[in-house]
Amino acid sequence: MLKKLAKVDEINAVLTKLSSQHLKGKHRALKLCLMALLSGGHVLLEDIPGLGKTTMALAFASALGLSFGRVQCTSDLLPSDITGLSIYDRTEGRFNFIKGPIFNNIVLIDEINRAMPKTQSALLEAMEERRVTVEGVTYRLPDPFLVLATQNPVEQVGTYPLPESQMDRFLIRTGIGYPPEEIEKEILKQGSIRDDILRIPALVRHEDLVEAIRTVAGEVYIGDKVTDYVYSIIRATRNHPLILTGLSTRGGISLVEAAKAAAYLHERAFVAPEDVRDVAHAVCPHRLIFRPEHEGVDKEQILNAILKEIPLPVT
């Protein structure tokens, strides 16, 4: 039989348990978050408030046994509110660096579009570099590190929407969506489960998680055929008449990395074309910049049309 990928059972068990017991109806979003964690990317959750973004992030962190930090963005939030700052210790007579919320494995940045651009920029830099430099000293951020930023698509007043170029920093953009009717009724009966979630025991060991991340990066193989498929998607977005700027090379890399994580979750040591196609819905649309006259069109629909045109390589 084929060689088993390291720790894949443990990771899938977490996913199954979370989505079946604690976070019903959020399987897709959870899976995407897990993919982002496994491939070292970040997630932009774009949905209206009250659908359980915070709950999901909390449960995710608890179940994986990771530390959790949260930042509520406001227009007067300063970069140091996120990164932390040095405070003078009178007894010792020196400055001590107090770490900000970003020094956690999983950081929930609520309503990122309310923060002013300066703060956003600092945050995005930290996401990309995985380290923070404060007053000349560089601090490494913990590993694994996942930022879950949320953005409210409805509110407009007093916000600083993320520019397209910065959207590119997020591996995955997704919504959560309303839960299915049955599940929503059940949730209504139970009431908020915020307290229960805090008591979720860690379902996976930290070493296993790190090994899984290493496996995704090092052992999931992407072959020529699938690379060709990815490239044909990229080319199609670049040549599409409605699209001004198609997928960048970074977009392509992100697509491959997300696909690797998807393949890992499917217990495969190689990427199949359907992995690419399935993650493309979450990875690609927010990277496409449409021509000004077509800004209103649904990006996901256009992407779907493009994907439908390109045959999956089967031989």
Binding site: L2, Y221, G223, K225, R268, A269, E274
Partner: peptide, 28 residues
């Protein structure tokens, strides 16, 4: 996709086939 089809049809032999076949074809 083959894996997708095999999962949807819930056909165990086809699934076996696909995992073996894909392991070669998608690994160049």
């Amino acid at each position: 996709g083959l894996f997708e089809l095999a999962a949807r049809l819930n056909d165990s032999e086809f699934r076996q086939f696909v995992s073996l076949y894909g392991d070669a074809v998608y690994r160049d």
